[in-house]
């Protein structure tokens, strides 16, 4: 089953775009300096974005 709730902690995000680049399902996008998750239904919960974010700024929740 795919789909997840992606939480971005805006206070911590520095806009490096690592999460966007290495998401295998193109769930995430940069909105200038901040990451957004316009396609959460495509998420396969591989956790790459959360594991690779250097800034504790993105979390993948079940749902």
């Amino acid at each position: 089953m795919s789909g997840a709730r992606i939480e971005v902690i805006e206070r911590n995000c520095k806009g490096c775009s690592i999460c966007v680049e290495f998401c295998p399902k193109n769930v995430l996008e940069m909105d200038v300096f901040l990451v957004t998750a316009p396609r959460p239904e495509d998420c396969i919960k591989c956790m790459q974005c959360e594991l690779l974010c250097p800034d504790f700024a993105i979390k993948v929740h079940d749902e």
């Binding site: 997840a4 911590n12 520095k14 919960k45 250097p54 504790f56 700024a57 979390k59 993948v60």
Partner: peptide, 23 residues
């Protein structure tokens, strides 16, 4: 699912000082 890092971090310390993209 989402990992609880916060319990291991001193309160109020984030965001950290490292540059965008620093490993």
């Amino acid at each position: 699912m989402a990992y609880d890092y916060e319990s291991s971090i001193r309160p109020g310390k984030l965001p950290h000082i490292w540059c965008p993209g620093c490993g």
